[in-house]
């Protein structure tokens, strides 16, 4: 999968991701928080909850997830509303909502730097923050931003400068690659659930082949991100667990 075509700004290959970093609980008072950075895109996610009661209109038989998106500067606009919705639906799909019925978990996301692939970065940050807060989850969500250039080439983890030149892009979210202690079971699971898709947000015209090309490359990269997530989370697991 490595090296499809020309070099990108910063000497990256088409499939190469930027340097990722994740800090556990940078915020003292939140129940769980994470600072997630992909190159110069940095976000801070804080999780509060679950606290009792759901808002009007939510299903009280399940736990509700509330997402508040705070842009770096200025007011919240349509773009941020769309991010909030995508984030909320994605988090709802990875959390076990029936464990704490009639509760609300608030996820607050502060953008600290935007250098492209903001939504994928935010999804990864929220996922890590939910883990640090100990919210019960089915699996992790791994998000990746894929960009399609005018000649059909796909680049991963796009930066802001690259996003300007893109013909179209897709933000994709996959479940993390399963790794089971039991070798047999993990092989079985790989066959079944590995090639699933949780969230897909695309923008711009692309051919069907371009889209599935994005998915294939995104899926390959998501394995690397989920390995990174796994090592980070394991490193931070307290001794008593």
């Amino acid at each position: 999968m490595e090296g499809g075509g020309g070099e990108r700004a910063g000497g990256r290959k088409a499939n190469q991701l930027r340097a990722y970093s994740c800090t556990r609980n940078p915020l003292e008072r939140a129940h769980g928080s994470a600072r997630w950075a992909q190159g110069d895109t940095v976000v801070l996610a804080a999780v509060y909850g679950p606290r009792p009661g759901t808002r009007k209109g939510e299903n009280p038989e399940k736990a509700a997830v509330e997402v508040v998106w705070k842009p770096k500067t200025g007011q919240i606009g349509r773009q941020e509303k769309e991010y909030e919705m995508a984030l909320k639906r994605t988090l709802q799909s990875i959390c076990l909502l029936t464990v704490h019925p009639n509760t609300t978990t608030s996820v607050i996301l502060q953008v600290m730097g935007d250098d492209g692939s903001l939504l994928p970065c935010a999804i990864n940050a929220c996922c890590a923050a939910l883990v640090f807060a100990g919210i019960p989850m089915k699996h992790l969500a791994v998000a990746i931003g894929c960009g399609v250039l005018a000649d059909g080439a796909v680049i991963l983890d796009t930066s802001k400068a690259e996003e300007q030149q893109l013909k179209s892009f897709a933000h994709l979210v996959f479940p993390n690659s399963s790794k089971s202690v039991d070798v047999k079971e993990s092989q079985q699971k790989d066959g079944q659930s590995e090639r699933g898709l949780i969230t897909s947000i695309t923008h711009g015209v692309m051919s069907e082949d371009d889209y599935f090309n994005c998915i294939e490359r995104g899926l390959a990269a998501s394995a690397r991100i989920s390995d990174f997530m796994r090592t980070t989370l394991q490193k931070h697991t307290p001794d008593y667990l």
């Binding site: 919705m85 639906r89 949780i198 969230t199 695309t202």
Partner: peptide, 11 residues
């Protein structure tokens, strides 16, 4: 394809 939107939900 102009857009494929799948906000969350099942895998």
């Amino acid at each position: 394809l102009v857009s494929i939107q799948k906000p969350g939900g099942g895998v």
